[in-house]
Every structure is written in C-alpha cells, then in structure tokens.
Design a protein around this nucleic acid. Structure first.
Lengths: 366, 366
DNA sequence: TTGTAAGCGTTATCAC
DNA sequence: GTGATAACGCTTACAA
C-alpha cells in the first residue's frame, strides 16, 4: 500500500472535511446576506423588532418573504437556553374531558408563543415516567401533569427540575408542585348528600370497571364517607363491563331484578356515560326513571341534558382547569427567576357544579 | 481612572466574556467526566449502545443514574439535522374524533422514538397557516394535516418542504401530498342509497349549522347526487342551532308538525349527535321511530348503539386513519432519501362501514 | 471500540 | 442601532 500522504504540517489543508449536510433549509445568514445586514440583525428583527430601524426592518421583511425563510426553533432554543416549550402529560387522549383541558391550555399558551408538547400515558404509570423523561429532554419551561401519584423515579426527576410544575384535575396534599383541580372525594360526597337530603337511605355507587379510573375511586370514597356520617351503609358495586354505556345498561337491568323494597332508591354512577346507559336502557328493563330509581352521573357530558329524564350530574371545569393551569405557569414564567423559584406551591380550586336535572329526583310517593 | 490593564498579548485573557448561563442542567460532558470516558462515547451510549463496549456501557449507565442526566433533545436535533419530530395539524382538539386519530398516530410514532408535535386550528384556515409555519420551525421530519384546502401561502410553504406530508380524513384529487382517508361524498351517497334501496322517495339531509363542518357539506353533496341519479328531489335542510343534540331535537320537533303525507320518510343527519338528539326527543314530539321516520347519522359514536331505536350510521376509521398515516410516514422516513423524495403521492383509502341498526328501517306499512 | 475536532443555526455578550 | 464573536450541547466525519 502506498500510504504516501500526511507529511503536511498540521496547519495545512486539514483533509477537506466533508461539509455536514444541512437540513437543506435556509439559514438566518442567507436572509441576512440578501438583505445586506448581519445575521444578528435578522435575529433581532424576529425577536425584538423595535430594536431594528424601520429601514432595515423593511429590507429584512422583503428578504424573508422572498426566500420563505422560517427561523429554526431548535437552534434558537439551544442558543437562548429558554425553551418556550410547555410539556403536558395527559393520561388519555381519547376522551372529551382531556380534549377540553388541552384546549384550555393551548388557548392560553398559543397567545404567548409557547409550544405545548403533549404526551399520553394511557393511564400507565410506567409510561408516565418514560414520557416525562422524554419531555424533560426538550428543556421545557414548565410542565403540566394530570395526576400526582407518580412512579418514584419520575417523582425524583420532577423534584430535581428547576421549572414550574402544575398537577391538575386532582388536589394532592402536601405536594411540592402547584395544584389546579378539585377534590374528587368531595364530589362523591356531594352526590351522596344530594340524595340523602331528599331522604334516600339506600344509595348505591356504581364503580367503573376500568382499573385506571383512580379518580372515580376517590369519588366512591367520598360517597362512602358521607353515607357513614349519616349512619347509612355504603353500597359500592362494581361492574365487569368495560364499555361504559353497556355497563350502565347491564347495571340497570340487574337492578330491575332486585326486590323493590330493598333495592337502592338512588344510584350514583362513576360517570355520565354509564348513567346514560342506565337511563337509555331503563324502559326496556321495565323501569320508569326516576320513579323507580333516581340517577346521577359525573362529567356533564353534552348528552346529559338531552336524556329523558335529563341527567343530574356534576360539571367539572374541564376547560377551566387547562386554562388556569396555563395561566398560572405563564405568571410564574414571567416572574423574576428568584421569585419563581421560591414561590410556595399554590393550590387553585376549580369548583365543580352540581347540575340538578330530573333524573336526580328521589321518589317520595309510596 | 486607572485603566492599567491590557498590555497583554492577544492570547491572554480575551476580556473575560461572561460565560453564558446555561439552563442549569447537566451536560453530556459532566456524565463523560464522571464515567471517565469522552463525551462522544456517552452520545453513542444513548444513540447506538451496541457500539459501546459492555464495560463502558456499565460505567456510563452508572454515571447517568447517579447524575439523573437527561440528554438535550434540542442540542441533539440541531447537531444531527434530523429532528425525529412529526408535526400534526388538527382542526379541533375537543372531539373524540380528533382524540382517536391522535391515539392512532402516537401508538405508531412513540414506538419509533418520534415526537408528535400537535397543533390546533379550530377550523380557522388563517390559523392553520400560522400553525404550519410554527411547526416548520421545528424542522419536523414529516407533517400530518387534516384538510387539504389550505391558504395559498400555507400551500406554497408546504410544497417547498422536502419532507413527507400526509393529508388525512379527506381524499383530495391531484394533491401533491399523500392522502389517507375516505370520500365523504361517497359516504353521503351511500347513506342515501341505503334509504332509496328500501323504497324511500322523500329523504332529507339535515346539515350541521357549523360553517366549519366542510366535510358534512361533502356528504350532503354525495347525498344530493344520488338523489338526482334516482330522479328524486334532494332536500338539504339547515339548522340554526349550534349544539348538535339540540339541533337534532329541534329538527325532529319541526318535522313532527309537517303533514305526514309529504314529510320525509327518512332523515340523514350530518352527524350522530344530531341524530341522537332527534331520537331522544322523538317521543316528546309524539313520534315513534323508525315508524314515523327512519334516521341515520355519521360517526358511529359510542352512544349510537345504545339509543332506542339504535342508530344506523357510518363508522369511519378514526383510529385507523391516524395509525395508517403514521405508518406511511414511518415507511417513507426509513426509505433512502432519493426514493422518498421521488415517491408518487399515495392515496390510501380507509374504508367506512355502514352500520345498519334499527333506526334505519324505512316504514313499509301504509 | 474509542477519541478528536468541527460544526449544526441561533442568540448572548461585548464593542462601536 | 448595528455588528463581530463566542457560545448553546450535541453529533458527524474522520483518525487511531
């Protein structure tokens, strides 16, 4: 083999390194060259236009339009350190509930030039950890979470971050992060109270069959607490059916077979879909609601008001939770760093509203 | 003033520039130092572990665990040029339709280490343009869109991108991008055919009041075409009510006041929620369905099967559309660049299924 | 298998 | 108000 080459002194032609293939796009330098200014001026044109003279602004605008240049978020974020990204970890995309919350967040964040990076865990805690880790790699300016019982490693990772973090939908106790939501336990209690106040004594809570529905379990606990406070016996029933409408239908069909003298006077369902299944199927089961049984749900689905009888339910601030969480973050991000860091975790209660409709009427006749 | 300092030659202390405040996090170098390797080895540990010896892998793993280091996506993406980000522009976050499609996309992309960047336009075309522009700044590896009638500037921007782009839900003709979806016009025709085949002659299409529901308008067109093909008179009615359940309820109430001899024998609603509103309200309007009027919807909402009568509808592949779009992109991203660039726009039809249930039965008595 | 050096495209810092 | 320069934290190209 020849091997004749490098006797050349280090300074000479360092072996023509291949230029890295760029992503093919235009850079700020191209625009700057075209406009006849330096690249930093173009940067200012985008980030602080008022620091650029009218004349240059126009020339740059022209060059941008002509080239179709779009600034690289990636490079900008790396250089500036501040990411302008807010990560949100949702438990489930396939539900209107979370969709509304996301809408609330984007409505606020979009107007502030913040990118929302969404991740989904499908209620799997182990996945939550992975997802948080991956979001953290984006150097988010803040994080929004939708539960507070994280895996230990995730919890440790979160506590180590020096960014604002909000946990939503639930209210955790003594959490080191901000909280925006409401007490599901209290909602369960309120629903029980609604029926107890009407004199009902046999009230059942029908649990969702989805093991991941940890918040419905909180509501069941609240229901049970209130029952016991009133010297009544909690009656939490489970269903085996996963599809909520079907679960409600099955529940009411089985209810119809119980002796009228001992069966519940009212049923609180874990959610509106189950309650709707019950109401829709009641006639076929030979029942007339609410005469034969009062019904309540949770969620205030659009359907709830259109059932016969219309469904008594609880309306959570789906949209408000997202919006308020985002606004809180925005406020914290605008605060001077030392203030933001030292701020006490806040707890913002987004109230639920009990929506009383016909289905919630306990039968008073005999 | 003293001003005694710089007689030192250029090499000395170049005016102590303040070190840029980092985002406070650890870098790959910290980990490398701790593990006693070079930073590139740590980089390989994350990106191509099999190129690192077992021994070093363990030392690095140790250092990573000890420090809690998380690689910076931002820096990595900038350096590598390939972003591993897929942008998706949705028209609407607050709907189950959106959620299922996104679920389909994430199920595929997550497994491939691709980040899905979601953006929402709320059906506003001008917003779509802004949103696309902002996504493009992330150098996405690919884009998923949910309409194909973009603003001219957005269209131009998209055509200039050298990345795979998929338009979903609709099938556009002669589009320069890939298509994954189905023909809404054909669905409208199929629903009309379903009733015509049963001998119905007076069939009405009740349009959504939402001006943004451009796909429902496509279905109405298909319905009208088929009506005319069968020498029947298209009857497309509009409703003023925005809330879909209420719109359906109003529609059926008004229908009840029309003379039985001339009113429609069947109604095709723009969506399932409207159809459900009609079915739920029918008894109150003194109607018995489907005897007095057959009903069909679109969407196959979970509720549809649980109505009395159960709703005849069309089931779009909500989840499948997201999944298939993502799989197509993945395939294109894996293909060698020259192939990917030259590939013809593909058109993948995700079939809809007509779900025949009781509500769709045209009354044959007299 | 491991390491060195040179960027990736932008912005912070300092100088004029 | 504008510009030169050096990072930002990582990965590519190339060498050993």
């Amino acid at each position: 083999m020849a091997r004749q080459l490098p006797p050349t002194p280090a300074r000479e032609a360092p072996a023509v390194r291949m230029r890295r293939r760029t992503h093919g796009g235009l850079t700020i330098h191209d625009v700057a060259a075209l406009a006849g200014v330096s690249s930093i001026t173009v940067s200012r044109y985008f980030n602080a236009p008022d620091k650029v003279s009218q004349a240059l602004r126009e020339r740059i605008a022209q060059a941008v339009k002509q080239t179709g240049y779009v600034p690289s978020q990636v490079a900008g974020r790396l250089a500036s350190g501040r990411s302008r990204v807010v990560g949100a970890v949702m438990q489930n995309f396939s539900s209107a509930t979370f969709a509304d919350t996301v809408q609330g967040m984007t409505d606020v964040l979009d107007d502030s030039g913040l990118q929302l990076l969404l991740a989904n865990t499908n209620y799997v805690r182990a996945r939550e950890e992975r997802v948080i880790r991956s979001l953290v790699g984006w150097h988010p300016s803040a994080l929004i979470l939708t539960r507070h019982d994280h895996a230990p490693a995730a919890e440790a990772l979160l506590r180590g971050l020096r960014i604002p973090i909000v946990e939503t939908w639930d209210l955790g106790e003594r959490r080191p992060f901000h909280q925006v939501g409401f007490s599901h336990e209290a909602v369960g209690a309120e629903l029980a109270r609604h029926f107890i106040a009407q004199g009902a004594q046999r009230i059942r809570f029908v649990q969702s069959s989805l093991p991941e529905d940890f918040r419905a379990r909180q509501r069941a606990l609240g229901y049970s607490r209130l029952m016991r406070q009133h010297a009544l016996v909690p009656d939490v029933a489970a269903t085996q059916v996963r599809e909520p409408f079907q679960a409600g239908a099955d529940t009411i069909a089985r209810f119809a077979e119980e002796p009228a003298s001992t069966r519940p006077q009212a049923i609180v369902f874990a959610n509106d879909d189950m309650a709707a299944g019950a109401i829709l199927h009641a006639p076929a089961a030979g029942l007339q609601l609410p005469r034969d049984c009062a019904i309540a749900g949770f969620g205030d689905a659009p359907l709830a008001a259109h059932l016969y009888p219309a469904l008594t339910t609880v309306r959570p601030g789906r949209y408000a939770i997202g919006r308020i969480a985002a606004e809180l973050l925005l406020e914290l991000l605008c605060a001077p760093p030392h203030e933001a860091a030292s701020v006490e975790p806040r707890c913002i209660v987004v109230p639920c509203e009990l929506i009383v409709r016909d289905s919630g009427q306990v039968w008073q006749g005999n």
